[in-house]
């Protein structure tokens, strides 16, 4: 009855797969933000290194950072780091599954604890910076 040898069909999975659905796009952005997070970590290390090189070097470095392009880069980095943080905080209840007796502690509460911690640390840092 059949003409050709029976075989299964393997559908291609194009490299653009992640453009097909919004959740995949958001995932790829989250992955991409890691680059910025890593980049900024390196930047912070450089920052500390410059600090150890004496006041002049450090002053020049700070001046360079005030350039419009550097400020713009900082805003972009901030946006990506925020995206990274928020998406990961929202995912924490998946990793941290807590129970009280039979009842699972609501996922919102677990994520909420991370947000609360974030706010507290930010406030402390802000006080420290502004207090100087």
């Amino acid at each position: 009855m059949g003409k050709k040898e029976m075989s299964t069909y393997h559908r291609p999975f194009p490299n653009t797969w992640w453009l097909k659905r919004k959740p995949y796009v958001l995932f790829m952005i989250r992955e991409l933000t890691s680059v910025f997070v890593a980049g900024y970590c390196i930047f912070l290390l450089v920052f500390v290194y410059k600090l150890t090189q004496g006041a002049d070097v450090y002053g020049n470095f700070i001046d360079a950072l005030k350039s419009p392009s550097s400020v713009a880069l900082h805003f972009i980095a901030l946006a990506f780091v925020l995206y990274h943080t928020i998406t990961w905080f929202n995912l924490t209840p998946k990793i941290l599954v807590l129970y009280k007796g039979e009842e699972r502690i609501p996922q919102g509460l677990v994520a909420g604890m991370f947000y609360a911690g974030w706010v507290v640390v930010s406030v402390i840092v802000a006080l420290f910076v502004l207090g100087m």
Binding site: M1, G2, K3, K4, M6, S7, T8, Y9, R11
Partner: peptide, 10 residues
């Protein structure tokens, strides 16, 4: 639609 006895492509 894909039929392995007839089609090469869906």
């Amino acid at each position: 639609r894909y039929h392995p006895e007839k089609d090469n492509e869906p």
